[in-house]
């Protein structure tokens, strides 16, 4: 949060709270990719392609909102991809499907919240390192998903549930609306509430926060539940889009989300970062995928490009942070 030194006794302008100074490079990269995309393909900037991009960004996007909270607070959640799979499988068992689409949605987010709660208990009260606790959860949750589904994709027969992945509301796909809603709620919680302020305080200095009377353990617990819920919502969107639940989905989503948060300018050790940066990070990755698909380029090259972007973004941020 690099604030300019001004004497004005007013909250910092909105622009400053949306983007920190080091996000300028990020926005430039974002703009450059859009320009490149529109030059490469006349189809790129059409409304239908923009909605395609936003729809495919929605799953990782929702997960990244939770991940931004976690990383800002100095933690990490490696289990989100596995939570997506486990929650999707639990919501699509024959028994769950018998309860109807609403119950399936509730089961999906509920299971995810429970796994997040378990992460939170291990980290906040079991004093486990977040990396280890969520790594263990990643392995265990995926195993459980395979156990429940028998390793076979479970086709969703509930048409209403499946429309969540494809329905248009005011011409915009429902997943995009959900993504937008999660971002807006996340932004308000992070920037306007006591909860958000305490999250950033814990990431900035956990010991100082505890000695300032903040219940760091409880705050941490809630943060991992939030991350779980975000993964659960992503699980609903993904399951509905694929019209099946499978223990194989969501692989490496945790890394995509972490990469988006980090290139979005959030410090990996916490205490500094913006949610808007994370969203731009998600969009950059999605745009690149989209351009590669439109241009019929192989996916291996796409992975290389992603890796290069992560390195370049972090190098640029290091530059601007040290020149401050």
């Amino acid at each position: 949060m690099s604030r300019p030194i001004v004497a004005a006794a007013a909250p910092p302008p909105l622009r400053k709270r949306l983007f920190a100074a080091h996000n300028i490079g990020l926005l430039a990269a974002f703009a450059a990719i859009i320009v490149a995309g529109s030059l490469l393909s006349p189809y790129f900037l059409t409304a239908s392609n923009v909605l395609t991009i936003l729809t495919s960004a929605s799953v990782i996007g929702v997960i990244s909102v939770g991940m931004t909270f976690i990383i800002l607070a100095g933690g990490i959640d490696l289990s989100v991809g596995a939570i997506v799979a486990l929650a999707g499988v639990c919501a699509t068992t024959p028994g769950a499907q018998g309860l109807g689409w609403l119950a399936m949605t509730a089961i999906c987010t509920g299971v995810a919240a429970l796994v997040g709660l378990l992460n939170g208990v291990l980290i906040a009260y079991g004093r486990m390192v977040p990396f280890i606790a969520t790594l263990a959860m990643l392995v265990a949750a995926r195993g459980l998903a395979q156990h429940i589904s028998g390793g076979v994709p479970q086709t969703v027969n509930d048409a209403t549930f499946n429309t969540i992945g494809s329905a248009l509301v005011l011409g915009v796909p429902l997943p995009v609306w959900v993504f937008a809603a999660v971002v807006v709620v996340g932004w308000i919680v992070l920037n306007r509430t006591t909860f958000g302020r305490r999250t950033i305080a814990i990431g900035g200095n956990a010991e100082a926060s505890r000695l300032a009377g903040i219940n760091v353990a409880r705050q941490t617990l809630v943060l991992y539940v939030i991350s779980g819920v975000c993964a659960g919502i992503a699980g609903v969107l993904l399951t509905a889009r694929l019209t099946s639940g499978s223990n194989d989905v969501g692989n490496l989503y945790e890394l995509d989300a972490i990469a988006a948060v980090i290139i979005g300018g959030t410090r990996l050790s916490g205490g500094r970062g913006t949610l808007a940066g994370s969203i731009v990070g998600v969009l950059i990755f999605t745009l690149i995928s989209n351009i590669f698909v439109l241009e019929n380029l192989p996916s291996d090259i796409q992975s290389i490009a992603k890796g290069v972007i992560i390195v370049a973004a972090v190098l640029l941020q290091g530059r601007s942070a040290s020149s401050k």
């Binding site: 949060m1 950033i200 305080a201 900035g204 100082a208």
Partner: peptide, 9 residues
């Protein structure tokens, strides 16, 4: 170490 968020306002 114990009291301040050094990078915050």
């Amino acid at each position: 170490r114990q009291a301040l968020l050094l990078d915050d306002s």
